[in-house]
Every structure is written in C-alpha cells, then in structure tokens.
Amino acid sequence: MSVFADPGSRSYARVAGALYLLIAISGGFAIAFVPAQLYVPGDLAASVQSLIDARGMFLAGIAGDVTMMVSELLVTPMLFFMFRSINPTLSLAAALARLTMVTTMAVMLMFHAAMLAFADGSALTAFSGEERMQLAGVMLYAHDSGVWVWQIFFSLHLWLLGALILKSGLFPRLLGLGLIVGGAGYILDSAFAFAFPEVAALGLLRAVLLGIVTLSEIGFALWLLIKGPRQV
C-alpha cells in the first residue's frame, strides 16, 4: 500500500487518475446510459415496467453505481491529501462536498430497492397490483430526485477543486477553469429538471456547461494518469 504514502508522487497521481476514469466510465453507464435505454420520459408507470422487464440491465446499472461509489471513497481522500498543502480548509471542504454527494447516491439505492419490492409484489402484498405499481413509481421519482440533490454538492466540489488546481500551479490552468465554469452545469441541471423544465435556454446552457465540465474532468483524470502533478 506504499502507493498511497506520498500524495506528491507520480504513482499516487496515476492511481487517482485511474480511479477517476473508472468513476467516469461506471458513472456514465449507470447514470446516463441505462436510464436513457429504459426510462420512458414523462411516464413513471411505464418506466417502472421497463426497468422490471429489463431487470438484467437495471441491475447492471446498480452494479455501475456501486463501482462508482466505492471508487469515490478512494478518490475523495486522495484528492484531499493531494491539495491539502495548497489550502487545507478548501481541500477539506471539497472532500466533504464530494462525500456528501456519495452519501446521497447511496441513499438513492434504497429507493431503487423499494421500487423493486413494490413492483414485483414482495412488499405490501395486501395492496392491489395497480397500487403497488403506483408506489413503485413514487419510489422511482424519489430516487431520481436524489440526482437533483447530489448535483448541488458536486457543483460545490468542482468549484473548490477547480480553485485548488488554479492556486496549486501543479496542473494546467485550463483544467481548473473548466471545472469552475462547467461545474455550474450540474446545479443548473437540477434547477432545470426540478423548477424550470419549460425554459429551453436554461436547458441549452446546462448542456453546454456539462459538456465543458465532462471534458475538464476527463482531462484532469488523464493528466493525473499520464503526467501527474508538475514538480515544483
């Protein structure tokens, strides 16, 4: 475990970068790909039925969620120690924001479990099938609402991480700027989905910002994996 001993080493950065890429891949699969294949926009009941009918893909998405969260629990302290010497307060705040995001994601899995229990009839057997499906839809809505919550904390994390990157001088400034500017995309996505779905301009802006932050995060992960922090 000596690879975790020196936050300034190349090997430490490579492990952090590899884990960050694993988060991007598993998270992209679980959060973007699976819902895009199975969800029926605007119809909770049809979405629940689709998830039940394609249980294998649905469970694969949950496996992606778990892989992402476990990787997050390793990356979060690694980033904290990597930037602690730059600004310990901001580095800790960034770690707490990211940990809060992961905690919210973990709670969301409970709603998925409840949705399955209601939909397949293993819970509330005294209720009719239609009533159980309605409750399953409520659980799915509660799960999806969790996305709007964790995105708020992730925006905060990205702003702080971007600021630390800029202050450190250890990585390209463009990556830090991309995280700060693009990080607003997550909080705008929450506002768009929860409060202002009819505002097309907001939807377009959050899509552009999410594209920027995705490229910046992947760029940061690849920089860690391939080059590591600059030696000062």
Results as ranks from 00 to 15, higher is better:
1 M>D: 03
1 M>L: 09
1 M>R: 00
3 V>K: 06
9 S>V: 10
10 R>N: 03
11 S>Y: 04
14 R>M: 02
16 A>F: 05
18 A>P: 13
21 L>C: 11
22 L>E: 01
24 A>W: 12
30 A>N: 00
31 I>V: 06
31 I>W: 13
34 V>F: 01
34 V>R: 09
34 V>A: 04
34 V>T: 10
36 A>V: 02
36 A>G: 14
37 Q>V: 08
37 Q>E: 13
38 L>K: 10
45 A>M: 06
47 S>A: 14
48 V>Q: 06
50 S>Y: 11
51 L>C: 00
51 L>S: 11
52 I>P: 03
55 R>S: 14
57 M>P: 01
59 L>W: 01
59 L>T: 06
60 A>D: 04
63 A>H: 07
63 A>M: 13
66 V>F: 08
67 T>V: 14
67 T>Q: 07
67 T>K: 12
71 S>F: 03
74 L>I: 14
74 L>M: 15
77 P>R: 11
77 P>E: 04
83 F>C: 09
85 S>N: 09
85 S>I: 12
88 P>G: 12
89 T>C: 05
89 T>E: 06
92 L>A: 15
93 A>K: 03
93 A>C: 06
95 A>H: 09
100 T>R: 03
103 T>S: 14
105 M>I: 11
112 H>L: 12
113 A>R: 14
115 M>H: 00
119 A>F: 12
122 S>Y: 13
122 S>N: 15
123 A>D: 08
129 G>Y: 14
131 E>V: 13
131 E>P: 06
131 E>T: 15
138 V>D: 08
143 H>V: 07
146 G>W: 03
151 Q>D: 08
152 I>F: 10
152 I>L: 13
153 F>R: 11
153 F>N: 02
154 F>Q: 00
157 H>M: 09
159 W>T: 00
160 L>S: 04
167 K>N: 06
167 K>I: 07
169 G>Y: 05
171 F>V: 00
172 P>M: 11
173 R>A: 14
180 I>P: 01
180 I>C: 04
182 G>M: 07
182 G>I: 04
183 G>M: 11
185 G>A: 08
191 A>I: 15
194 F>S: 15
197 P>E: 13
205 L>Y: 00
206 R>N: 04
207 A>Q: 09
211 G>H: 08
211 G>Q: 06
212 I>S: 02
218 I>R: 08
219 G>N: 05
219 G>W: 02
220 F>N: 00
223 W>N: 03
224 L>H: 05
226 I>Y: 10
230 R>A: 04
